[in-house]
Write a protein that binds this DNA or RNA. Sequence first.
RNA 1: GGAGAGUUGGCAGAGUGGUCGAAUGCGGUAGUCUUGAAAACUAUUGACCUUUACGGGUCCAGGGGUUCGAAUCCCUUACUCUCCGCCA
Length: 424
Amino acid sequence: MLELNLIRTKPDFVKERLKVKNFTRLELVDEVVVLDVERRRLQQVSEAAQHESKSLSKQIPKLYKQGKRDEAETLKSQAGSLKESIKNYQEELKITEEKLHDALVQLPNLPHESVAVGFGADDNEVVAENGTHPDLGEDAKPHWELFEQYNIVSLELGSKIAGAGFPVFIGKGARLQRAMINFFLDEASKAGYQEYMPPLMVNKDSAYATGQLPDKEGQMYHVTIDDLYLIPTAEVPLTNIYRDTIVNEEDFPIKLTGYTPCFRREAGSYGAHVRGLNRVHQFEKVEIVQLTHPDKSYAALEEMAKHVGGILQKLGLPYRILRLCGGDATFTSALTYDFETYSAAQKRWLEVSSVSNFETFQSNRMKLRFRDSETKKMRLAHTLNGSALALARIVATVLENNQTPEGIVIPEVLRPYTGFDIID
RNA sequence: GGAGAGUUGGCAGAGUGGUCGAAUGCGGUAGUCUUGAAAACUAUUGACCUUUACGGGUCCAGGGGUUCGAAUCCCUUACUCUCCGCCA
């Protein structure tokens, strides 16, 4: 959620920045400004009436003590009628506050100044590229063909048990996944992230706090009977650990990690790009989250990007880093780096990690604050997160890029975790 | 799922209709004393909204109600604890 004060003082600046994100409903900004003025006016008249009512009430017991019953009764009836108007003011105030909030949560985060104008994936800027594309020859197989050849993943079984997009990992395939999860968690621990195992379902408050609601309502699985949402990413439960908290400035940066399955309805997607593991409803992911001092968040973003790049290098995967343009960046982020690995068999790039700085957008919704040691004032913290890494697609590229006539060679770093060095 | 008890400031813990935003203790901060520290003493110490400022308002788990007036009475929801049931 954008900070109200910024919209109040610089509405035109806000609109300019929102245009970079291709946000078209700029009239919402004006609406916020108008509602904000109205809200404050109503609050003032309401509070003035409350003040009067309060001082009347204080006089009543005094008058009784002095034996002035009649005067006390008069004040009582005055206070009684005041009560009516207070009630009316407060109702109006409440309605205005709700309208203001509704408008406010529909505004996406402002992009960082380095974010380029653009409409979609083609406008993203490649900021780094690493590793060489393996030459697998003409008969290289895409991962879904390798699944069948080695019997390590079954899409059909998943479809039978749950539905399309729920792969079943079998034998060495399952073991490879578990190995990666452990490897990624260990890497995060080494980098100073505290490990958590959070709930896989969250309530509405949590989903609002990190910005999945109301923006991504249709993308989450909703358990309606208990009004819970299956997490689309560990970002949601991990970041919400710090909802409604005031942290000590010296505790920054706070670094959290966690492995969870992620559930996504992926409503509306279709076509060749959803084959195999490219796009599924449930996948495994190790997430890293940082809560930082506002002055340090961009340094933290670089650090997190480096962490993700380091893991990809250890796995021996060629990758590139994209800085997302305004049109492709998410609702909540100020700046996002996407990591893509090159799938040599599919001959295309697959997104395997997304590292973002949300600045105060999430912390404003969450009321995640700290007391600034210099000014002694409360300030909003900055929140960041990134995948380190998302499993399904990493499995896909590892399988494809490491295929040999003898079998699929397991990357060196994973062997202590898998207990085998080849899938054959 | 059933029965009972509870939820007060950073923590502990008073407070059962009117000067309670809330005693007291601990903790925190500042000062005195000290070469320094500790101890002692003194002062100070919640959050939020609003206001140029003075000030005003809200918050005693959340929501609703009674009353001129609610931390205090009533209803309701959530959570915690104890017992029972069920269960990996």
